[in-house]
Design a protein around this nucleic acid. Structure first.
Lengths: 153, 153
DNA sequence: CGAATTAGTTAGCATAGCTAACTATATTGC
DNA sequence: GCAATATAGTTAGCTATGCTAACTAATTCG
């Protein structure tokens, strides 16, 4: 016998392939909740970074969203006109701006996030306890992978 | 004592929240490989559905991509002009078109997919065997969740 | 102080989403 | 069997989101 337990097709390439597909399909489903926010994907995502990451400059926000400054400039403009964020001038550096979510923006984002998470949670409730445990452990591993990823690029 | 083992914060809401975040971050990283394909995200994704799902009509392809027919019509037009797909008239129904990937399109998609998966696999190679095993089991669970999801909506 | 660098914006282009309106083909009903 | 209806796809025109190039304003450096 080769090995006692499940050496079957769990090499990195195979797991990466299936994990990749799973992530795509998972997000495709939860994303359908977003229309209720009245915001497009780019604006919603930028607002999310601000709510969870705190106030930051336009350049930092653009980098976080993997987008160029002109693109973020327009998104910020739209979010500001919708009163979801506010712009504060930087005391130390007159060129920089500090972008931070308003109470309205924070509330809207949390509501949207709750809808997404609830849609996923509704599916997870159908799982066995042991399966939930496996997914729980998987999230911890993936969070570590993500941290390692950020360091190297 | 309340419970012997890891009842700690692995309720559906909490796991859903972390899984959701993990999926976002995972895709944000692998997506950076896509510029090498020379295609935008919508075209790449539509081509992927055709390569893995086989030839289908425009309406079916639009539904698979959660997009309206006019949007898909333009994407298909661009993919055809790039010779990555070809259009065949349906024998039974003169209104329908059958869209299928060309050899060139299939090759391009697979190359792009390999780059994405390789980027993820490179990170997974740093994990312990037991962790890979956990992720492997997680993908199986998530694939089942996805199948259940498709049925109910 | 002047030159180079840096932060952000503006202009202009391509892609990607939508609805409304259109064309062409199928299906239905009398 | 043909008129009415339904369905598949396209076209037109709008908004949103991505880019590069070029600009303005502020900072930093020699």
């Amino acid at each position: 016998m080769k090995e006692s337990k499940s050496k079957i097709a769990n090499d990195p390439e195979s797991v990466a392939d299936r994990l990749h597909s799973a992530a795509i399909h998972l997000l495709r489903h939860v994303r359908r909740q977003d229309s209720a926010t009245g915001l497009g994907p780019a604006r919603l995502s930028a607002l999310s970074v601000l709510v969870f990451g705190g106030a930051m400059s336009l350049k930092q926000l653009a980098a976080a969203e993997q987008v160029k400054p002109p693109t973020m400039s327009r998104i910020v403009d739209a979010l500001q006109r919708a009163a979801l964020i506010e712009i504060v001038g930087d005391e130390k550096d007159g060129r920089r701006i500090l972008i931070r979510p308003t109470a309205k923006g924070t509330k809207l984002l949390h509501a949207g996030r709750r809808r997404r998470v609830a849609a996923l949670a509704a599916q997870l409730k159908l799982l066995e306890v042991a399966e939930m445990e496996t997914l729980f452990q998987a999230t911890s591993i993936l969070e570590r992978v993500d941290r390692g990823w950020k360091e190297h690029s």
